[in-house]
Design a protein around this nucleic acid. Structure first.
Length: 743
RNA sequence: GCGGAUGUGGCGAAACAGGCAAACGCACCGGUCUCAGAAACCGGAGGUCCACGACCGUGAGGGUUCGACUCCCUCCAUCCGCACCA
């Protein structure tokens, strides 16, 4: 028996799989129907920082086990890989260390690819794509143009987060406690023209279709909460002095009789209109300017402030004149940017009313019925909602309405390393799309990646100055680039048809593979990537480019790998996958990362654990070699060891297939190995060894393949999955448990 | 404040549809082998006690049941998400 040498074995089989292109799959011939024997397995694609980390190892090993399991159960499995290769980190590295983002990115990709091969993951490398390659982002631009054409991408002025130190706009995710995540400077609010995708056009559908997909309930909850649909009414408040109506949204129209004042958001255009030409104009405008500039985080944490405008509105329910205030606790982005304040029944309104001495009139009594509400007194407040809306509606002063928290997706970034937005600004023609035939708009080389009050691309004078595609007069290209989440909102479609140079993908092919049967990735993408991708698929479906409306049929979130209680989202000293492969080999790492506990739960990285796994693999190696020296087991032999083997087949299969758990199968095979080592003379010894090797192959494909050869077989990676014999699953004796008084 | 998840030996965990709690593994203890150590192998182990056995044990308390880690109710603790959304 040779010594178990992970590196030799792993290299040997990785070379073999690469030579055979063992995990590549063909696209269907025209006319093929999706037949239920096809499986699209996908894990979220990595961002190419310098190296993989243990979280990646868990993510992709999980997907790998599923891939092998499905393949050996007769499925054709599409399991591609690519890189989310645009984005800030490469650009920042270039600013900091010199070099350019392209070189840094491509160096990192090469390094990660190498690590992925060394992990032995069964990937179809023929379909590899990277977001920064012109052959990919050409189609990102093409899809943008389609969305623009249909009004789903648009440009408007909106408040953004501005870092005065880095001289750039930050996404909401990059503002931490009101500060820039990189330099720590306090972020300012600024109004800027930005590009948006009209994701809000799909609010209801994004909400409703959650019931059609097999996702963890907590993820659906996060999306539901993020979309934040609330039903209520729009009520009209009359402003006699200006001969004008102001609508407000409320979820509690039953409390309208208690609306004792009215509040407008500081950034509302209404503010100017209200105070124009009055003696309060200066004071109110000064307040509004300061309050509006304050970041939302700060606004929420400090005491509410406000100022009286001198104007009054008419409460539509009781015709009372109520004062109009401007206050920082009212948000412009939600509803109409103005509210009716009901201090008796809303905490925020109460706080404000108490601070400024405004009247508080209760309109819902202790028993939940309406009071001080005229003809509606005595009605339970829930019934009051419909009754009052109907009554106001008859008088033209209100109607039922629905509001959402979800806002349109701002996707323009004032940074360099991203997909150029293919439009040109012309003085005469306005925003002009770049003609399809001129795609891709290539990202040009620039001198300096650091933005200085304008995006780096604005410095690329030769690139930015072009004739208008429509009239030919001098015009300028868009200098903003796209958020990287745009790239990752459709990559799974490109995988289905990665070499297509006529279209982003052929609809027939995309429809064949999609939707993804099993998607695996972190829950941190619950309301970002996972929502954006759903929006993209729905929009592209509406454009006739796809035949389905949800991208990810089943979703699973792996847990985090923790070191000293902290997430290993970065490579950490001593425990990078590279170093671990070098010390222990890929197979022990693969098994370790899954045996620790349920895959959707966080696991602690411990050095002891990996040592134990190495010991187990050596033991596995030895016990199987011993069994290989035995005579082949007779077909259908019925011994305790044979029955154990069949029981373990049934358990492992059920665990992976139905339960989607990956730790207990390893325990089950360990039990089988233990029993085999205790009963080496059992006639089923060889069968038990074959079963153990076969069942463990998805976890440790290299050593399993080698041992399969030792047992006299070949090509385990395409050998059908073992079947449990029902006859041998029955226990020969029935245990009769008698209990008396529960004992 | 709103929403969600989790709580089982010294540790990671298992027990899937209510049926012998702690499988499998770590750490630990003992033994074999060895000059010695490592490795490997064999064995032990929830707690308490009058120890052949008995009792207690799944965050706490109650309930349903012949029987509860599992189902129901009330708490407690920890973690996560959202949060001036009218």
């Amino acid at each position: 028996m040779e010594r178990y040498d992970a590196h030799t074995i792993e290299q040997k089989w990785q070379d073999e799989w690469a030579r055979e292109d063992a995990f590549a799959v063909e696209n269907p011939a025209p006319g093929s129907e999706r037949d239920g024997r096809h499986f699209y397995m996908l894990e979220m694609l990595p961002y190419p920082s310098g190296t993989l980390h243990m979280g990646h190892v868990l993510n992709y090993t999980l997907g790998d086990v599923v891939t092998h399991f499905r393949r050996r159960n007769g499925y054709t499995v599409l399991r591609p890989m690519g890189f989310d290769s645009f984005g800030l980190p490469a650009e920042n590295a270039a600013i900091k260390e010199g070099g350019n983002p392209l070189e840094i990115t491509e160096r990192n990709i090469a390094s990660i690819e190498n690590q992925m091969r060394r992990m032995g993951w069964a990937i179809d490398w023929d379909r590899e794509v990277s977001a920064h390659e012109p052959s990919y982002y050409r189609w990102t631009q093409w899809l943008f143009l389609k969305l623009f054409e249909h009004g789903l991408a648009y440009r408007k002025e909106a408040p953004v987060n501005w870092c005065p130190n880095d001289q750039t706009v930050l996404s909401n995710e990059h503002v931490v406690d009101g500060r820039c995540w990189r330099c720590g400077a306090v972020v300012e609010a600024r109004n800027m023209e930005q590009w948006f995708f009209k994701i809000t056009a799909y609010s209801d559908e994004l909400l409703d279709d959650l019931s059609t997909i097999d996702w963890p309930e907590r993820t659906k909850k996060i999306q539901r909460q993020h979309i934040g649909r609330s039903e209520g009414a729009e009520l009209i408040f009359r402003l006699d002095e200006l001969d004008r109506d102001i609508p407000v949204f409320t979820t509690r129209p039953d409390t309208v009789f208690g609306a004792t004042f009215f509040v407008v958001a500081p950034e509302s255009p209404l503010v100017d209109e209200l105070v124009e030409g009055t003696d309060r104009a200066e004071e109110v405008r000064a307040y509004a300017r300061i309050a509006a500039a304050r970041p939302t985080e700060e606004r929420a944490s400090r005491e509410k402030t406000g100022v009286f405008t001198g104007r009054h509105a008419i409460n539509p329910a009781n015709d009372e004149r109520i004062p109009i205030w401007v206050a920082d606790y009212v948000l412009m982005q939600y509803g109409t940017g103005a509210i009716m304040a009901v201090p008796a029944h809303d905490e925020r309104d109460r706080e404000f009313a108490e601070t400024y001495g405004l009247p508080i009139v209760p309109v819902v009594g202790e028993n939940g019925t309406l009071v001080n509400s005229g003809r509606f007194d005595g009605l339970p407040w829930r019934e009051g909602i419909d009754a009052i809306v109907a009554w106001l509606s008859e008088r033209g002063k209100g109607k039922p309405a629905i509001n959402y928290h979800l806002r349109d997706w701002s996707f323009s970034r004032q940074r360099y390393w991203g997909c150029p937005i293919p439009v040109v600004y012309c003085d005469d023609d306005g925003i002009v799309p770049v003609p399809e035939s001129e795609l891709p708009v290539l990202l040009p080389e620039v001198e300096n990646y650091r933005p200085k009050g304008e995006p780096p691309l604005a410095q690329a004078t030769e690139w930015i100055n072009v004739p208008c595609p429509r009239c030919g007069k001098p015009a300028r290209r868009e200098a903003d680039t796209m958020d990287t989440f745009v790239d990752s909102s459709w990559y799974f479609l490109r995988y289905t048809d990665p070499h297509d140079d006529e279209a982003p993908f052929e609809r027939r092919v995309a429809d064949y593979w999609m939707p993804i049967d099993q998607y695996i990735g972190g829950i941190d993408h619950a309301k970002g990537h996972l929502l954006y991708s759903r929006f993209f698929v729905k929009a592209l479906n509406d454009l006739g480019l796809l035949g389905f409306r949800e991208p990810f049929q089943r979703l699973f979130h792996q847990g985090w790998v923790l070191l000293d209680g902290k997430r290993m989202s970065k490579s950490q000293g001593g425990v990078t996958p590279d170093e671990l492969i070098e010390r222990f080999g890929a197979d022990p790492i693969r098994i370790y990362i899954l045996v620790q506990g349920p895959a959707d739960q966080d696991i602690d990285w411990t050095p002891d654990g990996i040592e134990a796994t190495v010991r187990f693999v050596r033991r596995f190696w030895r016990v199987v070699h011993d069994a290989a020296a035995r005579l082949p087991s007779p077909e259908g032999v019925d011994t305790p060891l044979a029955r154990k083997a069949h029981e373990v087949i049934a358990r492992v299969t059920d665990d992976i297939d139905r339960r989607f758990v990956f730790n207990t199968p390893i325990s089950a095979v360990m039990e089988l190995i233990n029993e085999l080592s205790k009963a080496p003379d059992d006639p089923a010894a060889r069968f038990a060894a074959e079963t153990a090797v076969s069942l463990l192959q998805p976890y440790v494909p290299h050593v399993a393949e080698e041992l399969w050869g030792v047992l006299g077989h070949s090509r385990l990676w395409e050998t059908p999955w073992p079947q449990a014999d029902e006859a041998l699953l029955r226990h020969e004796t029935i245990e009769l448990v008698l209990q008396v008084n529960g004992k």
